[in-house]
């Protein structure tokens, strides 16, 4: 009888605990994702992604995080604000409509050496995988040592290049490089 009482008590406690924890879907977001660490020797990039395919979700998050880091290192953002003034209606009830259209274009062209996943957390949300990922890039450190491993002899596969988007990307990267060269030249001449 005493055992039954203890079991009933335990069951009640478990029931209360389970009821208390089932109040709505709780997002288990890691703290390092919300508050990426700060370190003078590293740049961090945090990203999350979802997909039905585990490999795609990892690749997407890695790409996002690396892009974040690359943008932090150096990016070329060209902003353009267009302002449209439109007057609608007659004089007494005219309404001035101002429409702002902001257009920005961001080009990144960066080689990352030593970028790697520092922390990650993968979980399943129904049929989907979700991953939280923290990418780190050492600043300066170990860069020269890693360069030894590089082999630039292979240059393969150009299927992606056929699309208009990639042609545009290449064009923008070319423009950016030219701009940088001009800036460098102007700087050298001014010295």
């Amino acid at each position: 009888m005493k055992k039954v009482g203890i079991l009933s008590g335990l069951s009640l406690v478990l029931l209360i605990v389970s009821c208390a924890s089932s109040g709505g879907a709780k997002l288990d977001v890691p703290d390092w994702f919300l508050n990426p660490p700060k370190d003078p020797n590293y740049i961090f990039g945090a990203a999350t992604a979802t997909s039905r395919d585990l490999q795609i979700v990892i690749d997407k998050a890695k790409q996002d995080a690396r892009l974040d880091i690359a943008e932090n290192l150096r990016s070329n953002i060209q902003g353009l604000i267009k302002k449209f003034d439109e007057e609608v209606g007659r004089t007494e009830d005219s309404e001035l409509l101002q429409q702002f259209t902001q257009v920005s274009k961001n080009v990144v062209d960066q080689t990352l050496i030593g970028s790697r996943v520092n922390k990650s957390k993968a979980e399943k949300e129904g049929e989907m995988y979700r991953i939280y990922l923290l990418m780190e890039l050492p600043i300066g450190e170990a860069r020269a040592e890693l360069l030894k491993q590089i082999n630039n002899n292979h240059h393969l596969y150009t299927r992606f290049r056929a699309s208009q988007s990639f042609k545009e990307l290449e064009e923008e990267v070319r423009k950016l490089r030219e701009y940088e060269k001009e800036q460098q030249k102007a700087f050298e001449e001014s010295e």
């Binding site: 690396r66 892009l67 690359a70 902001q102 257009v103 920005s104 274009k105 961001n106 080009v107 990144v108 062209d109 960066q110 080689t111 990352l112 050496i113 030593g114 970028s115 890693l146 360069l147 491993q149 590089i150 988007s165 545009e168 990307l169 923008e172 990267v173």
Partner: peptide
């Protein structure tokens, strides 16, 4: 070891 990142984002 090495990863080259290129991106164009228009917004």
């Amino acid at each position: 070891l090495e990863y080259h990142e290129k991106a164009l984002k228009k917004l």
